[in-house]
Nucleic acid binder design. Structure first.
Length: 559
RNA sequence: GGCCCCAUCGUCUAGCCCGGCCCAGGACGCCAGGUUUUCAUCCUGGAAACAGGGGUUCGAAUCCCCUUGGGGUCACCA
Protein backbone atom coordinates (compact mmCIF):
# COMPACT_ATOMS: atom_id res chain seq x y z
CA UNK A 1 0.00 0.00 0.00
CA UNK A 2 1.08 3.59 -0.36
CA UNK A 3 1.11 6.64 1.79
CA UNK A 4 -1.81 8.68 0.45
CA UNK A 5 0.03 11.97 1.06
CA UNK A 6 3.02 11.07 -1.09
CA UNK A 7 1.52 8.36 -3.23
CA UNK A 8 4.57 6.13 -3.02
CA UNK A 9 5.22 2.84 -1.24
CA UNK A 10 6.11 3.34 2.41
CA UNK A 11 9.49 2.21 3.63
CA UNK A 12 10.99 3.22 6.96
CA UNK A 13 14.21 2.37 8.68
CA UNK A 14 15.60 2.36 12.18
CA UNK A 15 19.31 2.96 12.06
CA UNK A 16 21.05 2.72 15.42
CA UNK A 17 24.74 2.84 16.03
CA UNK A 18 25.80 -0.29 17.86
CA UNK A 19 27.38 1.53 20.80
CA UNK A 20 25.72 0.01 23.82
CA UNK A 21 22.30 -1.53 24.38
CA UNK A 22 18.99 -0.38 23.04
CA UNK A 23 17.99 2.69 24.96
CA UNK A 24 14.30 3.40 25.66
CA UNK A 25 14.48 6.47 23.43
CA UNK A 26 15.83 4.36 20.61
CA UNK A 27 13.20 1.75 21.29
CA UNK A 28 10.48 4.36 20.96
CA UNK A 29 11.90 5.53 17.63
CA UNK A 30 12.09 1.94 16.42
CA UNK A 31 8.53 1.33 17.57
CA UNK A 32 7.21 4.36 15.68
CA UNK A 33 9.15 3.45 12.53
CA UNK A 34 7.77 -0.05 12.77
CA UNK A 35 4.22 1.09 13.48
CA UNK A 36 4.23 3.58 10.64
CA UNK A 37 5.43 1.06 8.11
CA UNK A 38 2.94 -1.54 9.35
CA UNK A 39 0.11 0.96 9.24
CA UNK A 40 0.82 1.50 5.55
CA UNK A 41 1.64 -2.13 4.87
CA UNK A 42 5.10 -0.98 3.99
CA UNK A 43 8.65 -2.05 4.54
CA UNK A 44 10.71 -1.72 7.72
CA UNK A 45 14.48 -1.79 7.51
CA UNK A 46 16.99 -2.21 10.30
CA UNK A 47 20.39 -0.81 9.44
CA UNK A 48 23.47 -0.79 11.62
CA UNK A 49 25.35 2.50 11.53
CA UNK A 50 28.80 1.36 12.52
CA UNK A 51 30.94 3.91 10.73
CA UNK A 52 32.73 4.92 13.90
CA UNK A 53 35.53 2.42 14.20
CA UNK A 54 36.26 3.41 17.78
CA UNK A 55 32.80 2.81 19.14
CA UNK A 56 31.40 -0.10 17.26
CA UNK A 57 31.44 -3.60 18.55
CA UNK A 58 29.77 -6.70 17.17
CA UNK A 59 28.63 -7.85 20.58
CA UNK A 60 26.66 -4.73 21.38
CA UNK A 61 24.87 -4.79 18.06
CA UNK A 62 23.52 -8.26 18.69
CA UNK A 63 22.20 -7.14 22.05
CA UNK A 64 19.67 -4.76 20.64
CA UNK A 65 18.48 -7.17 17.99
CA UNK A 66 17.36 -9.27 20.93
CA UNK A 67 15.83 -6.23 22.62
CA UNK A 68 13.79 -5.41 19.52
CA UNK A 69 12.68 -9.00 19.20
CA UNK A 70 11.63 -9.07 22.84
CA UNK A 71 9.58 -5.91 22.32
CA UNK A 72 7.76 -7.59 19.47
CA UNK A 73 9.26 -5.36 16.80
CA UNK A 74 10.14 -7.33 13.68
CA UNK A 75 11.95 -6.02 10.63
CA UNK A 76 11.65 -6.95 6.98
CA UNK A 77 15.18 -6.09 5.98
CA UNK A 78 18.40 -6.02 7.94
CA UNK A 79 20.55 -8.38 9.94
CA UNK A 80 18.96 -11.80 10.20
CA UNK A 81 17.71 -12.58 13.69
CA UNK A 82 14.82 -14.61 15.06
CA UNK A 83 13.02 -14.72 11.74
CA UNK A 84 13.52 -11.05 10.94
CA UNK A 85 15.90 -9.54 8.43
CA UNK A 86 17.22 -10.42 5.04
CA UNK A 87 16.35 -8.28 2.05
CA UNK A 88 17.77 -7.16 -1.27
CA UNK A 89 19.31 -3.86 -0.24
CA UNK A 90 22.17 -5.23 1.84
CA UNK A 91 24.63 -5.33 3.30
CA UNK A 92 22.91 -3.68 6.26
CA UNK A 93 26.06 -2.96 8.20
CA UNK A 94 27.47 0.33 6.96
CA UNK A 95 31.00 -0.81 7.65
CA UNK A 96 30.46 -3.33 4.86
CA UNK A 97 29.41 -0.70 2.35
CA UNK A 98 32.55 1.40 2.12
CA UNK A 99 33.02 1.08 -1.66
CA UNK A 100 29.46 2.28 -2.21
CA UNK A 101 30.05 5.42 -0.19
CA UNK A 102 33.37 6.10 -1.88
CA UNK A 103 31.77 5.84 -5.26
CA UNK A 104 29.29 8.56 -4.33
CA UNK A 105 31.89 10.68 -2.61
CA UNK A 106 34.10 10.65 -5.70
CA UNK A 107 31.13 11.50 -7.85
CA UNK A 108 30.59 14.57 -5.71
CA UNK A 109 34.27 15.54 -5.89
CA UNK A 110 34.31 15.19 -9.66
CA UNK A 111 31.17 17.25 -10.01
CA UNK A 112 32.67 19.98 -7.87
CA UNK A 113 30.17 19.40 -5.05
CA UNK A 114 32.90 18.27 -2.68
CA UNK A 115 36.62 18.78 -2.17
CA UNK A 116 39.62 17.44 -0.33
CA UNK A 117 40.85 19.23 2.77
CA UNK A 118 43.98 18.65 4.81
CA UNK A 119 43.54 20.40 8.14
CA UNK A 120 44.27 18.19 11.13
CA UNK A 121 41.77 17.77 13.96
CA UNK A 122 44.13 19.81 16.15
CA UNK A 123 44.12 22.73 13.74
CA UNK A 124 40.34 22.67 13.53
CA UNK A 125 40.05 22.47 17.28
CA UNK A 126 42.18 25.56 17.66
CA UNK A 127 40.13 27.45 15.11
CA UNK A 128 36.96 26.44 16.91
CA UNK A 129 38.27 27.59 20.24
CA UNK A 130 39.26 30.92 18.82
CA UNK A 131 35.86 31.41 17.25
CA UNK A 132 34.26 30.69 20.59
CA UNK A 133 36.61 33.09 22.36
CA UNK A 134 35.58 35.77 19.93
CA UNK A 135 31.97 34.98 20.62
CA UNK A 136 30.98 33.82 17.16
CA UNK A 137 29.82 30.52 15.75
CA UNK A 138 32.57 28.51 14.11
CA UNK A 139 32.31 27.90 10.37
CA UNK A 140 34.93 26.15 8.29
CA UNK A 141 36.77 28.85 6.34
CA UNK A 142 36.98 26.89 3.06
CA UNK A 143 40.74 27.34 2.97
CA UNK A 144 41.14 24.02 1.18
CA UNK A 145 38.91 25.24 -1.61
CA UNK A 146 41.71 27.58 -2.65
CA UNK A 147 44.26 24.79 -2.98
CA UNK A 148 45.87 24.22 -6.34
CA UNK A 149 44.63 20.92 -7.88
CA UNK A 150 48.21 19.82 -8.47
CA UNK A 151 49.03 20.33 -4.83
CA UNK A 152 45.94 18.41 -3.78
CA UNK A 153 47.01 15.50 -5.95
CA UNK A 154 50.51 15.64 -4.58
CA UNK A 155 49.39 15.65 -0.98
CA UNK A 156 47.00 12.78 -1.59
CA UNK A 157 49.76 10.79 -3.27
CA UNK A 158 51.99 11.54 -0.35
CA UNK A 159 49.35 10.13 1.99
CA UNK A 160 48.70 13.31 3.94
CA UNK A 161 45.88 13.36 6.48
CA UNK A 162 42.94 14.09 4.20
CA UNK A 163 39.17 14.39 4.48
CA UNK A 164 36.48 15.24 1.95
CA UNK A 165 34.18 18.16 2.61
CA UNK A 166 30.84 18.86 1.02
CA UNK A 167 30.68 22.24 -0.70
CA UNK A 168 27.48 23.70 0.63
CA UNK A 169 25.69 25.68 -2.07
CA UNK A 170 24.59 29.24 -1.29
CA UNK A 171 21.02 29.99 -0.24
CA UNK A 172 18.68 29.01 2.53
CA UNK A 173 17.54 25.44 3.05
CA UNK A 174 13.89 24.56 3.57
CA UNK A 175 12.24 21.24 4.16
CA UNK A 176 8.95 19.89 5.41
CA UNK A 177 8.50 17.79 8.48
CA UNK A 178 5.40 15.71 9.06
CA UNK A 179 5.42 16.52 12.75
CA UNK A 180 6.89 19.99 12.98
CA UNK A 181 5.85 21.53 9.69
CA UNK A 182 8.20 23.62 7.57
CA UNK A 183 11.65 24.56 8.77
CA UNK A 184 14.08 26.96 7.14
CA UNK A 185 17.77 27.43 7.83
CA UNK A 186 19.21 30.74 6.65
CA UNK A 187 21.99 31.04 4.11
CA UNK A 188 25.43 30.54 5.61
CA UNK A 189 24.16 28.64 8.60
CA UNK A 190 25.55 25.35 7.44
CA UNK A 191 29.26 25.11 6.76
CA UNK A 192 31.19 22.68 4.58
CA UNK A 193 30.85 19.55 6.66
CA UNK A 194 33.04 16.51 6.32
CA UNK A 195 31.59 13.57 4.42
CA UNK A 196 34.64 11.29 4.37
CA UNK A 197 36.90 10.89 7.37
CA UNK A 198 40.66 10.50 7.25
CA UNK A 199 40.31 6.78 7.93
CA UNK A 200 38.33 6.39 4.73
CA UNK A 201 34.99 5.85 6.44
CA UNK A 202 32.08 8.08 5.49
CA UNK A 203 30.57 10.34 8.11
CA UNK A 204 27.05 9.77 9.32
CA UNK A 205 25.63 12.40 6.97
CA UNK A 206 26.95 10.87 3.80
CA UNK A 207 26.24 7.28 4.76
CA UNK A 208 22.68 8.03 5.82
CA UNK A 209 21.83 9.85 2.64
CA UNK A 210 23.35 7.24 0.36
CA UNK A 211 21.78 4.32 2.18
CA UNK A 212 18.35 5.87 2.53
CA UNK A 213 18.34 6.46 -1.23
CA UNK A 214 19.74 3.07 -2.21
CA UNK A 215 17.50 1.25 0.23
CA UNK A 216 14.53 3.20 -1.09
CA UNK A 217 13.50 4.66 2.23
CA UNK A 218 10.41 6.81 1.79
CA UNK A 219 9.96 8.15 5.32
CA UNK A 220 12.73 9.09 7.71
CA UNK A 221 11.50 8.99 11.32
CA UNK A 222 14.11 9.93 13.85
CA UNK A 223 14.65 11.89 17.06
CA UNK A 224 14.32 15.65 17.08
CA UNK A 225 18.00 16.08 17.84
CA UNK A 226 18.53 15.35 14.14
CA UNK A 227 16.52 18.31 12.93
CA UNK A 228 19.62 20.37 12.17
CA UNK A 229 21.22 17.45 10.35
CA UNK A 230 18.28 17.16 8.03
CA UNK A 231 19.24 20.41 6.33
CA UNK A 232 22.63 18.89 5.50
CA UNK A 233 21.02 15.74 4.28
CA UNK A 234 18.63 17.57 2.00
CA UNK A 235 21.57 19.39 0.46
CA UNK A 236 23.42 16.14 -0.12
CA UNK A 237 20.36 14.51 -1.59
CA UNK A 238 20.03 17.29 -4.12
CA UNK A 239 23.71 17.21 -5.05
CA UNK A 240 23.59 13.46 -5.53
CA UNK A 241 20.42 13.64 -7.56
CA UNK A 242 18.40 11.70 -5.02
CA UNK A 243 14.83 12.44 -4.09
CA UNK A 244 14.19 13.91 -0.66
CA UNK A 245 12.34 11.45 1.58
CA UNK A 246 9.54 12.57 3.86
CA UNK A 247 10.79 13.46 7.32
CA UNK A 248 9.28 13.22 10.78
CA UNK A 249 11.24 14.32 13.81
CA UNK A 250 10.13 12.69 17.03
CA UNK A 251 10.20 14.43 20.41
CA UNK A 252 12.92 13.44 22.84
CA UNK A 253 12.41 11.46 26.02
CA UNK A 254 13.79 12.96 29.23
CA UNK A 255 14.29 11.98 32.82
CA UNK A 256 11.64 13.28 35.21
CA UNK A 257 14.02 16.04 36.30
CA UNK A 258 14.34 17.28 32.74
CA UNK A 259 17.82 15.98 32.10
CA UNK A 260 18.46 13.87 29.09
CA UNK A 261 18.17 10.16 29.77
CA UNK A 262 21.55 8.54 29.45
CA UNK A 263 23.48 5.48 30.40
CA UNK A 264 25.45 7.64 32.81
CA UNK A 265 22.38 7.94 35.01
CA UNK A 266 23.05 4.49 36.41
CA UNK A 267 26.53 5.40 37.45
CA UNK A 268 25.32 8.65 38.93
CA UNK A 269 22.62 6.93 40.99
CA UNK A 270 25.00 4.27 42.26
CA UNK A 271 27.62 6.85 43.18
CA UNK A 272 25.08 8.87 45.11
CA UNK A 273 23.91 5.77 46.95
CA UNK A 274 27.44 4.72 47.88
CA UNK A 275 28.12 8.21 49.20
CA UNK A 276 24.96 8.16 51.30
CA UNK A 277 26.03 4.88 52.83
CA UNK A 278 29.47 6.31 53.48
CA UNK A 279 31.04 3.14 52.15
CA UNK A 280 34.81 3.05 52.56
CA UNK A 281 35.44 -0.01 50.44
CA UNK A 282 33.64 -2.38 48.11
CA UNK A 283 31.57 -5.23 49.62
CA UNK A 284 33.41 -8.52 49.51
CA UNK A 285 33.19 -10.42 46.27
CA UNK A 286 32.07 -7.51 44.12
CA UNK A 287 34.85 -5.42 42.62
CA UNK A 288 38.51 -4.78 43.36
CA UNK A 289 39.29 -2.22 46.00
CA UNK A 290 41.47 -0.08 43.75
CA UNK A 291 38.81 -0.09 41.02
CA UNK A 292 36.34 1.03 43.67
CA UNK A 293 38.62 3.74 45.04
CA UNK A 294 39.50 5.07 41.60
CA UNK A 295 35.86 5.23 40.69
CA UNK A 296 34.91 7.01 43.91
CA UNK A 297 37.68 9.55 43.64
CA UNK A 298 37.08 10.45 40.01
CA UNK A 299 33.59 11.75 39.42
CA UNK A 300 33.92 11.43 35.69
CA UNK A 301 34.91 7.80 35.69
CA UNK A 302 32.33 5.10 35.18
CA UNK A 303 32.20 1.49 36.27
CA UNK A 304 31.76 -1.21 33.69
CA UNK A 305 28.17 -2.43 33.51
CA UNK A 306 29.09 -5.75 35.11
CA UNK A 307 30.91 -4.00 37.93
CA UNK A 308 28.04 -1.62 38.58
CA UNK A 309 25.58 -4.51 38.57
CA UNK A 310 27.67 -6.50 41.03
CA UNK A 311 28.04 -3.57 43.36
CA UNK A 312 24.38 -2.63 43.19
CA UNK A 313 23.34 -6.22 43.87
CA UNK A 314 25.58 -6.49 46.89
CA UNK A 315 24.20 -3.24 48.27
CA UNK A 316 20.63 -4.27 47.50
CA UNK A 317 20.34 -1.12 45.43
CA UNK A 318 18.24 -0.88 42.32
CA UNK A 319 19.90 0.90 39.46
CA UNK A 320 17.57 3.08 37.43
CA UNK A 321 16.37 1.34 34.30
CA UNK A 322 17.63 2.99 31.13
CA UNK A 323 17.96 0.29 28.53
CA UNK A 324 15.24 -1.98 27.28
CA UNK A 325 17.08 -4.86 28.83
CA UNK A 326 17.01 -3.16 32.23
CA UNK A 327 13.23 -3.11 32.13
CA UNK A 328 13.22 -6.73 31.11
CA UNK A 329 15.39 -7.64 34.12
CA UNK A 330 13.14 -5.62 36.37
CA UNK A 331 10.17 -7.68 35.32
CA UNK A 332 8.25 -5.41 32.99
CA UNK A 333 6.15 -6.98 30.27
CA UNK A 334 7.27 -6.08 26.74
CA UNK A 335 3.77 -5.11 25.68
CA UNK A 336 3.49 -2.70 28.58
CA UNK A 337 6.81 -1.10 27.80
CA UNK A 338 5.80 -0.59 24.16
CA UNK A 339 2.43 0.77 25.18
CA UNK A 340 3.98 3.21 27.60
CA UNK A 341 6.75 4.22 25.21
CA UNK A 342 4.19 4.94 22.54
CA UNK A 343 2.31 7.15 24.99
CA UNK A 344 5.44 9.23 25.36
CA UNK A 345 5.05 11.28 22.22
CA UNK A 346 1.88 9.85 20.75
CA UNK A 347 -1.69 9.21 21.72
CA UNK A 348 -4.67 7.77 19.90
CA UNK A 349 -7.09 10.32 21.37
CA UNK A 350 -10.46 9.63 22.98
CA UNK A 351 -8.84 9.15 26.38
CA UNK A 352 -7.59 5.76 25.27
CA UNK A 353 -4.36 4.76 26.97
CA UNK A 354 -4.08 1.02 27.01
CA UNK A 355 -3.34 -0.65 23.70
CA UNK A 356 -1.03 -3.22 22.18
CA UNK A 357 1.35 -3.25 19.24
CA UNK A 358 -1.32 -4.60 16.93
CA UNK A 359 -3.39 -1.54 17.70
CA UNK A 360 -0.42 0.68 16.95
CA UNK A 361 0.19 -1.11 13.67
CA UNK A 362 -3.34 -0.28 12.78
CA UNK A 363 -3.78 3.23 14.11
CA UNK A 364 -0.43 4.95 14.32
CA UNK A 365 -0.34 8.27 12.49
CA UNK A 366 2.29 10.97 12.44
CA UNK A 367 -0.19 13.81 12.81
CA UNK A 368 -0.83 12.71 16.38
CA UNK A 369 2.82 12.75 17.32
CA UNK A 370 3.62 15.31 20.00
CA UNK A 371 6.03 18.15 19.32
CA UNK A 372 7.19 18.54 22.89
CA UNK A 373 9.63 16.34 24.76
CA UNK A 374 8.22 13.81 27.22
CA UNK A 375 9.44 13.14 30.75
CA UNK A 376 9.69 9.45 31.36
CA UNK A 377 7.49 8.65 34.37
CA UNK A 378 8.49 5.31 35.88
CA UNK A 379 5.62 5.45 38.39
CA UNK A 380 3.06 5.43 35.64
CA UNK A 381 4.89 2.69 33.80
CA UNK A 382 4.84 0.66 37.00
CA UNK A 383 1.11 1.23 37.40
CA UNK A 384 0.55 0.06 33.84
CA UNK A 385 2.65 -3.02 34.47
CA UNK A 386 0.62 -3.81 37.59
CA UNK A 387 -2.60 -3.53 35.62
CA UNK A 388 -1.29 -5.80 32.89
CA UNK A 389 -0.09 -8.38 35.39
CA UNK A 390 -3.45 -8.33 37.18
CA UNK A 391 -5.15 -9.08 33.90
CA UNK A 392 -3.11 -12.22 33.36
CA UNK A 393 -4.71 -15.54 34.20
CA UNK A 394 -3.10 -17.63 36.95
CA UNK A 395 -1.56 -19.88 34.30
CA UNK A 396 -0.18 -17.03 32.24
CA UNK A 397 1.32 -15.40 35.28
CA UNK A 398 2.77 -18.67 36.48
CA UNK A 399 4.42 -19.30 33.11
CA UNK A 400 5.91 -15.81 32.91
CA UNK A 401 7.06 -15.94 36.50
CA UNK A 402 8.82 -19.25 35.88
CA UNK A 403 10.51 -17.87 32.79
CA UNK A 404 11.65 -14.84 34.69
CA UNK A 405 12.97 -16.97 37.51
CA UNK A 406 14.83 -19.24 35.10
CA UNK A 407 16.50 -16.22 33.58
CA UNK A 408 17.14 -13.98 36.55
CA UNK A 409 16.28 -15.76 39.82
CA UNK A 410 17.40 -19.36 39.39
CA UNK A 411 17.74 -19.95 43.14
CA UNK A 412 13.96 -19.89 43.51
CA UNK A 413 13.59 -22.71 41.02
CA UNK A 414 16.37 -24.68 42.63
CA UNK A 415 14.96 -24.42 46.12
CA UNK A 416 11.28 -24.82 45.39
CA UNK A 417 9.65 -27.82 43.83
CA UNK A 418 6.97 -27.46 41.16
CA UNK A 419 4.14 -27.42 43.64
CA UNK A 420 5.79 -24.91 45.95
CA UNK A 421 6.51 -22.61 43.05
CA UNK A 422 2.94 -22.90 41.91
CA UNK A 423 1.65 -21.93 45.34
CA UNK A 424 4.16 -19.11 45.43
CA UNK A 425 2.98 -17.87 42.05
CA UNK A 426 -0.68 -17.94 43.07
CA UNK A 427 -0.09 -16.17 46.33
CA UNK A 428 2.05 -13.33 44.93
CA UNK A 429 0.11 -12.68 41.75
CA UNK A 430 -2.30 -10.08 43.10
CA UNK A 431 0.44 -8.09 44.80
CA UNK A 432 3.02 -8.13 42.00
CA UNK A 433 3.76 -4.98 40.08
CA UNK A 434 6.56 -6.64 38.17
CA UNK A 435 7.72 -10.16 37.50
CA UNK A 436 10.75 -9.53 39.63
CA UNK A 437 9.10 -8.06 42.69
CA UNK A 438 8.01 -11.39 44.23
CA UNK A 439 11.58 -12.60 44.23
CA UNK A 440 13.00 -9.39 45.62
CA UNK A 441 10.55 -9.16 48.47
CA UNK A 442 10.47 -12.83 49.39
CA UNK A 443 14.09 -13.83 49.70
CA UNK A 444 13.32 -15.30 53.11
CA UNK A 445 11.65 -18.19 51.31
CA UNK A 446 14.91 -19.44 49.87
CA UNK A 447 17.42 -18.81 52.63
CA UNK A 448 18.43 -21.56 55.09
CA UNK A 449 16.38 -21.54 58.29
CA UNK A 450 19.37 -20.64 60.43
CA UNK A 451 19.95 -17.46 58.44
CA UNK A 452 16.66 -15.89 59.44
CA UNK A 453 17.25 -13.02 61.85
CA UNK A 454 14.93 -10.78 63.83
CA UNK A 455 15.41 -7.15 64.57
CA UNK A 456 13.71 -6.84 67.93
CA UNK A 457 14.49 -3.15 67.96
CA UNK A 458 12.28 -2.39 65.00
CA UNK A 459 8.86 -1.03 65.76
CA UNK A 460 6.74 -3.37 63.66
CA UNK A 461 8.59 -6.43 64.99
CA UNK A 462 8.13 -5.24 68.55
CA UNK A 463 4.48 -4.65 67.88
CA UNK A 464 3.98 -8.12 66.46
CA UNK A 465 5.95 -10.05 69.07
CA UNK A 466 6.57 -8.10 72.24
CA UNK A 467 3.96 -5.44 72.85
CA UNK A 468 0.55 -5.66 74.42
CA UNK A 469 -1.08 -7.61 77.24
CA UNK A 470 -0.81 -10.82 75.35
CA UNK A 471 2.33 -10.40 73.23
CA UNK A 472 2.70 -12.46 70.10
CA UNK A 473 5.78 -14.23 71.31
CA UNK A 474 3.82 -15.76 74.18
CA UNK A 475 1.59 -17.52 71.69
CA UNK A 476 4.34 -18.97 69.56
CA UNK A 477 4.84 -22.11 71.67
CA UNK A 478 1.17 -22.95 71.48
CA UNK A 479 1.04 -22.20 67.79
CA UNK A 480 4.12 -24.31 67.24
CA UNK A 481 2.38 -27.21 68.89
CA UNK A 482 -0.65 -26.74 66.67
CA UNK A 483 1.41 -26.49 63.51
CA UNK A 484 3.35 -29.58 64.45
CA UNK A 485 0.19 -31.60 64.25
CA UNK A 486 -1.64 -29.96 61.34
CA UNK A 487 -2.34 -32.50 58.68
CA UNK A 488 -2.17 -32.02 55.80
CA UNK A 489 0.16 -29.03 56.00
CA UNK A 490 -1.57 -27.00 53.31
CA UNK A 491 -3.00 -23.51 53.25
CA UNK A 492 -6.64 -24.54 53.58
CA UNK A 493 -6.07 -26.67 56.63
CA UNK A 494 -3.70 -24.12 58.14
CA UNK A 495 -6.29 -21.43 57.66
CA UNK A 496 -8.89 -23.49 59.46
CA UNK A 497 -6.65 -24.29 62.39
CA UNK A 498 -5.24 -20.79 62.82
CA UNK A 499 -8.61 -19.14 62.50
CA UNK A 500 -9.93 -21.39 65.22
CA UNK A 501 -7.05 -20.31 67.40
CA UNK A 502 -7.73 -16.65 66.68
CA UNK A 503 -11.40 -17.15 67.46
CA UNK A 504 -10.59 -18.66 70.82
CA UNK A 505 -7.81 -16.37 71.95
CA UNK A 506 -8.34 -13.10 70.13
CA UNK A 507 -12.01 -12.90 69.46
CA UNK A 508 -11.45 -13.62 65.79
CA UNK A 509 -8.71 -11.07 65.17
CA UNK A 510 -6.61 -13.03 62.75
CA UNK A 511 -3.87 -10.42 62.70
CA UNK A 512 -2.97 -11.28 66.26
CA UNK A 513 -2.00 -14.74 65.09
CA UNK A 514 -0.84 -14.05 61.55
CA UNK A 515 1.56 -11.26 62.29
CA UNK A 516 3.62 -12.97 65.02
CA UNK A 517 3.85 -16.04 62.82
CA UNK A 518 4.82 -13.96 59.83
CA UNK A 519 7.61 -12.32 61.74
CA UNK A 520 8.76 -15.61 63.20
CA UNK A 521 9.08 -17.40 59.88
CA UNK A 522 10.21 -14.53 57.66
CA UNK A 523 12.15 -12.28 59.99
CA UNK A 524 10.15 -9.33 58.64
CA UNK A 525 6.63 -8.03 58.58
CA UNK A 526 5.92 -8.52 54.90
CA UNK A 527 5.07 -11.74 53.16
CA UNK A 528 2.40 -13.34 51.01
CA UNK A 529 -0.75 -14.41 52.87
CA UNK A 530 0.36 -16.27 55.95
CA UNK A 531 -1.27 -19.61 55.16
CA UNK A 532 0.42 -19.78 51.78
CA UNK A 533 3.69 -18.64 53.23
CA UNK A 534 3.60 -21.45 55.75
CA UNK A 535 2.69 -24.00 53.12
CA UNK A 536 5.50 -22.91 50.79
CA UNK A 537 8.06 -23.08 53.59
CA UNK A 538 6.84 -26.47 54.73
CA UNK A 539 6.37 -27.81 58.19
CA UNK A 540 10.05 -28.42 59.01
CA UNK A 541 11.18 -24.94 58.13
CA UNK A 542 8.25 -23.34 59.88
CA UNK A 543 8.93 -25.23 63.12
CA UNK A 544 12.67 -24.54 62.91
CA UNK A 545 12.12 -20.87 62.45
CA UNK A 546 9.56 -20.57 65.21
CA UNK A 547 11.95 -22.35 67.59
CA UNK A 548 14.79 -20.08 66.62
CA UNK A 549 12.62 -17.03 67.06
CA UNK A 550 11.50 -18.12 70.52
CA UNK A 551 15.06 -18.84 71.56
CA UNK A 552 16.39 -15.59 70.21
CA UNK A 553 13.69 -13.64 72.02
CA UNK A 554 14.40 -15.53 75.24
CA UNK A 555 18.06 -14.57 75.12
CA UNK A 556 17.13 -10.92 74.87
CA UNK A 557 18.05 -8.76 77.85
CA UNK A 558 14.78 -8.35 79.70
CA UNK A 559 13.31 -4.90 79.63
C1' G B 1 26.40 32.98 22.19
C1' G B 2 24.50 31.90 16.63
C1' C B 3 20.78 29.01 14.39
C1' C B 4 16.49 25.75 14.74
C1' C B 5 12.22 23.76 17.37
C1' C B 6 8.60 23.97 21.14
C1' A B 7 4.87 25.81 25.23
C1' U B 8 -2.63 22.61 28.53
C1' C B 9 -2.74 19.93 35.90
C1' G B 10 3.70 17.72 39.35
C1' U B 11 4.02 13.98 34.93
C1' C B 12 1.92 11.59 30.22
C1' U B 13 -1.84 13.68 27.54
C1' A B 14 -7.41 14.92 25.21
C1' G B 15 -9.20 19.39 23.16
C1' C B 16 -5.96 23.17 18.91
C1' C B 17 -5.35 22.13 12.20
C1' C B 18 -11.73 23.07 10.82
C1' G B 19 -12.61 29.38 16.99
C1' G B 20 -18.48 28.79 20.73
C1' C B 21 -20.63 22.02 23.18
C1' C B 22 -14.18 23.64 27.92
C1' C B 23 -15.30 28.33 34.52
C1' A B 24 -10.78 22.51 30.09
C1' G B 25 -11.60 15.76 30.00
C1' G B 26 -8.69 11.14 31.12
C1' A B 27 -4.46 8.57 33.24
C1' C B 28 -0.26 8.21 36.78
C1' G B 29 1.18 10.57 41.12
C1' C B 30 -0.54 13.40 45.45
C1' C B 31 -4.19 14.38 49.68
C1' A B 32 -8.57 12.58 52.72
C1' G B 33 -11.72 8.56 53.94
C1' G B 34 -13.06 3.15 53.50
C1' U B 35 -12.03 -2.48 52.67
C1' U B 36 -8.00 -5.91 53.95
C1' U B 37 -4.07 -11.23 58.50
C1' U B 38 1.25 -7.86 56.81
C1' C B 39 2.58 -5.76 52.20
C1' A B 40 0.49 -4.68 47.71
C1' U B 41 -4.15 -4.27 45.71
C1' C B 42 -9.21 -2.50 45.59
C1' C B 43 -13.33 1.34 46.43
C1' U B 44 -15.10 6.55 47.32
C1' G B 45 -14.09 11.66 47.42
C1' G B 46 -10.66 15.94 46.72
C1' A B 47 -6.86 19.51 45.32
C1' A B 48 -4.31 20.36 40.75
C1' A B 49 -3.17 23.40 34.14
C1' C B 50 -4.65 26.67 29.02
C1' A B 51 3.36 30.70 30.71
C1' G B 52 2.61 36.40 30.38
C1' G B 53 1.10 40.53 27.38
C1' G B 54 -1.02 42.49 23.13
C1' G B 55 -4.15 41.91 18.96
C1' U B 56 -8.25 39.55 15.40
C1' U B 57 -13.43 38.25 16.60
C1' C B 58 -20.04 38.87 18.91
C1' G B 59 -16.88 34.96 21.07
C1' A B 60 -9.93 32.20 21.77
C1' A B 61 -6.88 26.90 25.23
C1' U B 62 -7.92 27.00 19.96
C1' C B 63 -5.86 32.18 14.75
C1' C B 64 -1.66 36.31 14.58
C1' C B 65 2.43 39.15 17.00
C1' C B 66 5.77 40.15 21.05
C1' U B 67 7.96 38.74 25.68
C1' U B 68 9.35 34.95 28.86
C1' G B 69 10.53 30.00 29.58
C1' G B 70 12.17 25.11 27.95
C1' G B 71 14.71 22.02 24.54
C1' G B 72 17.90 20.71 20.41
C1' U B 73 22.24 21.71 17.66
C1' C B 74 26.80 23.98 16.47
C1' A B 75 32.50 16.78 15.92
C1' C B 76 36.99 13.46 11.17
C1' C B 77 29.78 10.64 17.20
C1' A B 78 25.55 8.92 15.36
Amino acid sequence: MTDPSTDCPVSTRYAPSPSGHLHVGGARTALFCWAFSRRHHGNFILRIEDTDQKRSSQKASLGFLEDLDWLGIDWDEGPEFAGSGGGDHGPYYQSQRLPIYDEHIMKLVEAGHAYWAFETPEQLDAARKQARAEGRAYRYDRAALELDPAEVRQRLDRGDHAVVRFKVPPGEVTFDDMVLGTTTFPDGEIDDFIIRKADGFPTYHLAVVVDDALMEVSHVLRAQEHLNNTARHVLLQRALGFGVPAHAHLPLIFNPDGSKMSKRDKDKALRAHVKTLGLGGPPAGTIDDDVFQNWLSDKRSQLEIEQADALARALDFELPEINVNDFRCSGYLPGVLCNFLALNGWSPGNDLEKFDNAFLAENFTLDRVQKTPAHFDRMKLLAFNLDAIQELTEDQFHTLLREHAAEYRPEFLQLMDQEQFRTFSESVHERSKTLDEPFRTNRFLVIPDEQVTWDFQSKPVKKALLNGDSPGISHLPALRLLLDSVDPFDSDTLEQVLKDYADQKFDGQLGKVAQPLRVAVSGGTVSPPIFHTLQILGRDSVLNRIDACINTAASLPST
